[in-house]
Amino acid sequence: MKAIGFKQSLPITDQNSFIEFETAKPSPSGFDLLVKIEAISVNPVDFKIRESAAKDTTLDTPKIIGWDAVGTVEAVGDQTSLFKVGDKVFYAGDLTRSGSNAEYQLIDERIVGKKPKNLSIEEAAAIPLTGLTAFESLFDRIKVNPETDKGKTVLILAGAGGVGSIAIQLAKKIANLTVIATASRPDSIQWCKDLGADFVVNHHSLKEDLEKINHSQVNYILDFVDLEGYWETAAEIIKPQGHIVSITGSSKPLNLDILKAKSVSFSWELMYTRSMFNTEDIVRQHEILNTLADLLDAGTIKSTLTTTLKGFTVDNLKKAHEMQESGKTIGKTVILF
Protein backbone atom coordinates (compact mmCIF):
# COMPACT_ATOMS: atom_id res chain seq x y z
CA MET A 1 0.00 0.00 0.00
CA LYS A 2 1.03 3.60 -0.50
CA ALA A 3 2.06 5.59 2.56
CA ILE A 4 3.71 8.96 3.22
CA GLY A 5 6.11 9.38 6.14
CA PHE A 6 9.52 10.70 7.16
CA LYS A 7 12.88 9.40 8.35
CA GLN A 8 14.12 12.69 9.77
CA SER A 9 12.55 15.69 11.47
CA LEU A 10 13.19 18.32 8.81
CA PRO A 11 11.74 21.75 8.00
CA ILE A 12 8.57 21.32 5.96
CA THR A 13 10.28 23.15 3.06
CA ASP A 14 12.95 20.42 2.84
CA GLN A 15 12.56 18.04 -0.09
CA ASN A 16 12.62 15.02 2.26
CA SER A 17 10.36 16.37 5.01
CA PHE A 18 7.85 13.82 3.67
CA ILE A 19 8.56 10.85 1.44
CA GLU A 20 6.19 8.51 -0.38
CA PHE A 21 6.87 4.77 -0.07
CA GLU A 22 5.24 1.35 -0.33
CA THR A 23 4.61 -0.87 2.69
CA ALA A 24 2.62 -4.04 3.41
CA LYS A 25 -1.13 -3.76 3.96
CA PRO A 26 -1.76 -4.85 7.58
CA SER A 27 -4.25 -7.49 8.76
CA PRO A 28 -6.61 -6.89 11.70
CA SER A 29 -6.85 -9.00 14.86
CA GLY A 30 -8.45 -8.49 18.27
CA PHE A 31 -10.45 -5.24 18.45
CA ASP A 32 -8.89 -3.82 15.27
CA LEU A 33 -10.57 -2.73 12.09
CA LEU A 34 -8.73 -2.48 8.79
CA VAL A 35 -9.92 0.79 7.26
CA LYS A 36 -9.43 1.88 3.66
CA ILE A 37 -8.86 5.60 4.13
CA GLU A 38 -10.70 8.13 1.96
CA ALA A 39 -9.82 11.45 3.65
CA ILE A 40 -7.64 12.77 6.46
CA SER A 41 -7.33 16.11 8.23
CA VAL A 42 -4.20 17.76 9.59
CA ASN A 43 -3.94 19.15 13.12
CA PRO A 44 -1.21 21.02 15.07
CA VAL A 45 -0.21 17.73 16.73
CA ASP A 46 0.84 16.45 13.27
CA PHE A 47 3.54 19.03 12.66
CA LYS A 48 4.67 19.03 16.30
CA ILE A 49 5.35 15.30 16.14
CA ARG A 50 6.93 15.61 12.70
CA GLU A 51 9.31 18.18 14.16
CA SER A 52 10.28 16.08 17.19
CA ALA A 53 9.94 12.35 16.43
CA ALA A 54 13.20 12.00 14.46
CA LYS A 55 15.30 14.88 15.69
CA ASP A 56 19.08 14.32 15.42
CA THR A 57 18.51 10.81 14.06
CA THR A 58 17.54 8.97 10.89
CA LEU A 59 14.89 6.28 11.21
CA ASP A 60 15.37 2.93 9.48
CA THR A 61 11.72 2.82 8.46
CA PRO A 62 9.68 5.95 7.62
CA LYS A 63 7.35 7.03 10.42
CA ILE A 64 3.70 7.35 9.41
CA ILE A 65 1.84 10.04 11.34
CA GLY A 66 -1.66 11.50 10.93
CA TRP A 67 -4.72 10.87 13.04
CA ASP A 68 -8.07 12.15 11.78
CA ALA A 69 -9.48 9.86 9.12
CA VAL A 70 -12.66 8.80 7.33
CA GLY A 71 -12.89 5.51 5.49
CA THR A 72 -14.58 2.16 4.92
CA VAL A 73 -14.08 -0.96 7.02
CA GLU A 74 -12.44 -3.59 4.80
CA ALA A 75 -11.77 -6.32 7.40
CA VAL A 76 -12.33 -6.86 11.14
CA GLY A 77 -10.48 -8.56 14.00
CA ASP A 78 -11.80 -11.58 15.89
CA GLN A 79 -12.94 -9.57 18.95
CA THR A 80 -14.83 -6.83 17.16
CA SER A 81 -18.57 -6.29 17.66
CA LEU A 82 -19.27 -2.62 16.91
CA PHE A 83 -18.66 -2.54 13.14
CA LYS A 84 -18.81 -4.80 10.10
CA VAL A 85 -17.17 -4.86 6.69
CA GLY A 86 -18.53 -2.05 4.51
CA ASP A 87 -19.29 0.38 7.35
CA LYS A 88 -18.28 4.02 6.87
CA VAL A 89 -16.34 5.25 9.91
CA PHE A 90 -14.41 8.21 11.28
CA TYR A 91 -11.87 8.45 14.08
CA ALA A 92 -8.92 10.39 15.54
CA GLY A 93 -6.47 7.55 15.99
CA ASP A 94 -3.89 6.56 18.57
CA LEU A 95 -0.53 8.26 19.21
CA THR A 96 1.15 4.92 19.93
CA ARG A 97 0.36 3.36 16.54
CA SER A 98 1.00 3.91 12.85
CA GLY A 99 -1.01 6.91 11.60
CA SER A 100 -3.55 7.72 8.91
CA ASN A 101 -1.18 9.08 6.25
CA ALA A 102 -1.56 5.82 4.33
CA GLU A 103 -4.07 4.02 2.12
CA TYR A 104 -4.99 1.56 4.90
CA GLN A 105 -4.83 1.68 8.69
CA LEU A 106 -5.48 -0.58 11.66
CA ILE A 107 -7.59 1.09 14.35
CA ASP A 108 -9.18 -0.15 17.58
CA GLU A 109 -12.95 -0.10 17.01
CA ARG A 110 -13.54 1.24 20.54
CA ILE A 111 -12.16 4.63 19.48
CA VAL A 112 -14.04 4.66 16.16
CA GLY A 113 -17.45 6.19 15.37
CA LYS A 114 -19.96 5.90 12.55
CA LYS A 115 -19.40 8.48 9.83
CA PRO A 116 -22.13 11.17 9.85
CA LYS A 117 -24.51 10.18 7.03
CA ASN A 118 -25.41 13.70 5.95
CA LEU A 119 -21.82 14.97 5.68
CA SER A 120 -19.43 14.59 2.78
CA ILE A 121 -16.28 12.56 3.36
CA GLU A 122 -14.19 15.72 3.68
CA GLU A 123 -16.67 17.41 6.04
CA ALA A 124 -16.60 14.36 8.30
CA ALA A 125 -12.79 14.10 8.26
CA ALA A 126 -12.54 17.56 9.84
CA ILE A 127 -14.29 16.48 13.03
CA PRO A 128 -12.88 13.58 15.11
CA LEU A 129 -9.80 14.92 16.92
CA THR A 130 -11.16 18.39 17.58
CA GLY A 131 -14.65 17.09 18.34
CA LEU A 132 -13.38 14.58 20.89
CA THR A 133 -11.09 17.17 22.49
CA ALA A 134 -13.83 19.79 22.81
CA PHE A 135 -16.42 17.28 24.03
CA GLU A 136 -14.09 15.75 26.62
CA SER A 137 -13.04 19.21 27.83
CA LEU A 138 -16.62 20.27 28.53
CA PHE A 139 -18.30 17.07 29.60
CA ASP A 140 -15.55 14.75 30.91
CA ARG A 141 -13.20 17.26 32.54
CA ILE A 142 -15.46 20.13 33.66
CA LYS A 143 -18.49 17.82 33.73
CA VAL A 144 -20.85 20.60 32.62
CA ASN A 145 -24.51 19.87 33.34
CA PRO A 146 -26.63 21.58 30.63
CA GLU A 147 -29.54 22.03 33.07
CA THR A 148 -27.92 23.15 36.33
CA ASP A 149 -25.06 25.06 34.64
CA LYS A 150 -27.22 26.79 32.04
CA GLY A 151 -26.11 30.37 31.40
CA LYS A 152 -22.72 30.06 33.08
CA THR A 153 -19.83 31.66 31.19
CA VAL A 154 -17.06 29.87 29.33
CA LEU A 155 -14.06 31.65 27.83
CA ILE A 156 -12.62 29.79 24.84
CA LEU A 157 -9.05 30.82 24.07
CA ALA A 158 -8.38 30.53 20.30
CA GLY A 159 -12.01 30.31 19.27
CA ALA A 160 -11.35 30.14 15.52
CA GLY A 161 -8.94 27.22 15.71
CA GLY A 162 -9.90 23.60 15.08
CA VAL A 163 -10.80 22.71 18.67
CA GLY A 164 -12.23 26.13 19.47
CA SER A 165 -14.54 25.97 16.46
CA ILE A 166 -16.20 22.81 17.78
CA ALA A 167 -16.08 23.92 21.42
CA ILE A 168 -18.03 27.10 20.63
CA GLN A 169 -20.82 25.04 19.09
CA LEU A 170 -20.95 22.39 21.83
CA ALA A 171 -20.78 24.99 24.60
CA LYS A 172 -23.63 27.00 23.07
CA LYS A 173 -25.91 24.34 21.57
CA ILE A 174 -25.43 21.42 23.99
CA ALA A 175 -24.04 22.78 27.25
CA ASN A 176 -26.28 25.90 27.27
CA LEU A 177 -23.41 28.15 28.30
CA THR A 178 -22.75 31.83 27.59
CA VAL A 179 -19.83 31.61 25.17
CA ILE A 180 -16.99 34.12 24.99
CA ALA A 181 -14.32 33.37 22.37
CA THR A 182 -11.01 35.06 21.65
CA ALA A 183 -10.07 36.18 18.14
CA SER A 184 -8.36 39.25 16.69
CA ARG A 185 -8.62 39.26 12.90
CA PRO A 186 -11.86 40.31 11.15
CA ASP A 187 -12.27 36.92 9.47
CA SER A 188 -11.65 34.92 12.66
CA ILE A 189 -13.96 37.20 14.68
CA GLN A 190 -16.77 36.67 12.17
CA TRP A 191 -16.11 32.91 12.11
CA CYS A 192 -16.59 32.71 15.90
CA LYS A 193 -19.79 34.74 15.73
CA ASP A 194 -21.15 32.56 12.93
CA LEU A 195 -20.53 29.45 15.05
CA GLY A 196 -22.60 30.88 17.90
CA ALA A 197 -20.25 32.77 20.21
CA ASP A 198 -22.20 35.31 22.31
CA PHE A 199 -19.15 37.56 22.55
CA VAL A 200 -15.78 37.72 20.79
CA VAL A 201 -12.92 39.46 22.61
CA ASN A 202 -9.39 40.30 21.53
CA HIS A 203 -6.71 38.22 23.25
CA HIS A 204 -4.34 41.20 23.10
CA SER A 205 -6.65 43.19 25.42
CA LEU A 206 -8.42 40.31 27.14
CA LYS A 207 -9.12 41.72 30.60
CA GLU A 208 -10.22 45.11 29.25
CA ASP A 209 -12.52 43.53 26.67
CA LEU A 210 -14.10 41.23 29.26
CA GLU A 211 -14.87 44.23 31.46
CA LYS A 212 -16.48 46.01 28.49
CA ILE A 213 -18.97 43.14 28.07
CA ASN A 214 -19.62 42.96 31.84
CA HIS A 215 -17.96 39.56 32.22
CA SER A 216 -14.75 40.46 34.05
CA GLN A 217 -14.80 36.96 35.54
CA VAL A 218 -15.92 33.67 33.98
CA ASN A 219 -16.96 30.26 35.31
CA TYR A 220 -14.86 28.19 32.93
CA ILE A 221 -11.79 28.68 30.76
CA LEU A 222 -10.84 26.38 27.89
CA ASP A 223 -7.23 26.98 26.83
CA PHE A 224 -6.56 25.82 23.29
CA VAL A 225 -3.55 28.01 22.55
CA ASP A 226 -0.96 28.91 25.25
CA LEU A 227 -1.46 27.96 28.90
CA GLU A 228 1.89 29.32 30.02
CA GLY A 229 1.22 32.71 28.45
CA TYR A 230 -2.30 32.99 29.89
CA TRP A 231 -1.75 31.34 33.30
CA GLU A 232 -1.66 34.43 35.55
CA THR A 233 -4.44 36.14 33.61
CA ALA A 234 -6.57 33.00 33.80
CA ALA A 235 -6.13 32.90 37.57
CA GLU A 236 -7.34 36.50 37.77
CA ILE A 237 -10.41 36.17 35.57
CA ILE A 238 -11.67 32.77 36.70
CA LYS A 239 -14.54 32.91 39.19
CA PRO A 240 -14.28 31.31 42.63
CA GLN A 241 -14.89 27.54 42.32
CA GLY A 242 -14.41 27.81 38.57
CA HIS A 243 -12.63 25.31 36.32
CA ILE A 244 -9.76 25.72 33.86
CA VAL A 245 -9.02 23.08 31.20
CA SER A 246 -5.92 23.13 28.98
CA ILE A 247 -4.70 21.08 26.04
CA THR A 248 -1.47 23.00 25.44
CA GLY A 249 0.98 22.14 28.22
CA SER A 250 3.74 24.30 29.66
CA SER A 251 7.51 24.41 29.24
CA LYS A 252 7.95 25.25 32.93
CA PRO A 253 6.19 24.33 36.19
CA LEU A 254 2.96 26.24 36.82
CA ASN A 255 2.23 27.88 40.15
CA LEU A 256 -0.99 26.17 41.25
CA ASP A 257 -1.03 28.19 44.48
CA ILE A 258 -2.54 31.15 42.63
CA LEU A 259 -5.73 29.09 42.22
CA LYS A 260 -5.96 28.08 45.89
CA ALA A 261 -7.85 31.02 47.39
CA LYS A 262 -10.64 30.67 44.85
CA SER A 263 -10.75 26.82 45.09
CA VAL A 264 -10.37 26.70 41.32
CA SER A 265 -10.14 23.29 39.63
CA PHE A 266 -7.59 22.65 36.89
CA SER A 267 -7.61 19.78 34.40
CA TRP A 268 -5.42 18.66 31.55
CA GLU A 269 -7.18 17.33 28.48
CA LEU A 270 -5.41 14.94 26.13
CA MET A 271 -7.66 13.20 23.66
CA TYR A 272 -5.16 10.34 23.35
CA THR A 273 -5.18 9.37 27.04
CA ARG A 274 -7.81 6.66 26.66
CA SER A 275 -6.08 4.95 23.73
CA MET A 276 -2.52 5.41 25.09
CA PHE A 277 -3.34 3.71 28.38
CA ASN A 278 -6.16 1.45 27.19
CA THR A 279 -8.32 2.85 29.99
CA GLU A 280 -11.32 0.97 31.35
CA ASP A 281 -13.60 3.50 29.64
CA ILE A 282 -11.84 3.47 26.26
CA VAL A 283 -15.16 2.79 24.49
CA ARG A 284 -16.28 6.24 25.66
CA GLN A 285 -14.60 7.67 22.55
CA HIS A 286 -16.73 5.43 20.33
CA GLU A 287 -19.80 6.77 22.14
CA ILE A 288 -18.69 10.42 21.87
CA LEU A 289 -17.98 10.11 18.15
CA ASN A 290 -21.42 8.58 17.58
CA THR A 291 -22.98 11.42 19.57
CA LEU A 292 -21.11 13.95 17.44
CA ALA A 293 -22.25 12.13 14.28
CA ASP A 294 -25.88 12.39 15.43
CA LEU A 295 -25.49 16.11 16.23
CA LEU A 296 -23.93 16.73 12.81
CA ASP A 297 -26.61 14.73 11.00
CA ALA A 298 -29.31 16.68 12.82
CA GLY A 299 -27.70 20.00 11.91
CA THR A 300 -27.30 20.94 15.58
CA ILE A 301 -23.60 21.50 14.99
CA LYS A 302 -21.76 21.83 11.69
CA SER A 303 -18.45 20.74 10.23
CA THR A 304 -15.56 23.14 10.65
CA LEU A 305 -14.01 22.28 7.27
CA THR A 306 -12.56 25.34 5.53
CA THR A 307 -9.94 23.97 3.10
CA THR A 308 -9.92 20.79 0.97
CA LEU A 309 -6.79 19.60 -0.82
CA LYS A 310 -7.53 16.94 -3.43
CA GLY A 311 -5.11 14.04 -3.76
CA PHE A 312 -3.05 12.01 -1.26
CA THR A 313 0.34 13.40 -2.26
CA VAL A 314 3.55 14.58 -0.63
CA ASP A 315 2.92 18.09 -1.94
CA ASN A 316 -0.57 18.28 -0.40
CA LEU A 317 0.66 16.95 2.94
CA LYS A 318 3.45 19.54 2.95
CA LYS A 319 0.98 22.27 2.07
CA ALA A 320 -1.35 21.24 4.92
CA HIS A 321 1.56 21.23 7.40
CA GLU A 322 2.70 24.66 6.23
CA MET A 323 -0.80 25.98 6.86
CA GLN A 324 -0.86 24.54 10.38
CA GLU A 325 2.59 25.88 11.18
CA SER A 326 1.49 29.40 10.22
CA GLY A 327 -0.81 29.50 13.25
CA LYS A 328 -3.33 31.51 11.25
CA THR A 329 -5.63 28.80 9.92
CA ILE A 330 -9.35 29.03 10.60
CA GLY A 331 -11.27 25.80 11.02
CA LYS A 332 -9.86 22.60 9.50
CA THR A 333 -7.81 21.51 6.49
CA VAL A 334 -8.64 18.15 4.88
CA ILE A 335 -6.88 16.03 2.26
CA LEU A 336 -9.27 14.03 0.09
CA PHE A 337 -7.74 10.82 -1.28
Rank of each mutant, 00 (worst) to 15 (best):
I12N: 06
D14K: 00
A24E: 15
G30R: 01
G30Y: 05
L33R: 05
I37L: 11
V42F: 10
P44F: 07
P44W: 05
R50V: 05
E51C: 04
S52V: 06
S52C: 07
S52R: 09
D60W: 00
P62L: 01
G71L: 12
G71R: 06
V73F: 07
G86I: 15
V89E: 04
L95P: 02
G99F: 11
L106F: 07
I111A: 01
G113F: 04
G113V: 11
K114S: 11
P116S: 10
I127G: 03
T130R: 01
T130G: 09
S137A: 14
F139R: 03
D140Y: 04
R141K: 14
E147K: 13
T153R: 08
L157E: 09
I166M: 14
I168L: 06
K172D: 12
I174N: 02
A175V: 04
T178Y: 09
I180M: 09
I180A: 08
S184T: 14
R185L: 14
S188N: 10
D209S: 11
E211V: 15
K212D: 14
L222K: 00
V225W: 00
P240G: 07
G242M: 06
G249S: 10
S251T: 14
S265C: 01
W268R: 05
M271F: 05
F277I: 08
T279V: 13
L295P: 00
T307I: 15
D315E: 15
D315H: 04
E322N: 03
T329C: 05
T333Q: 07
L336A: 12
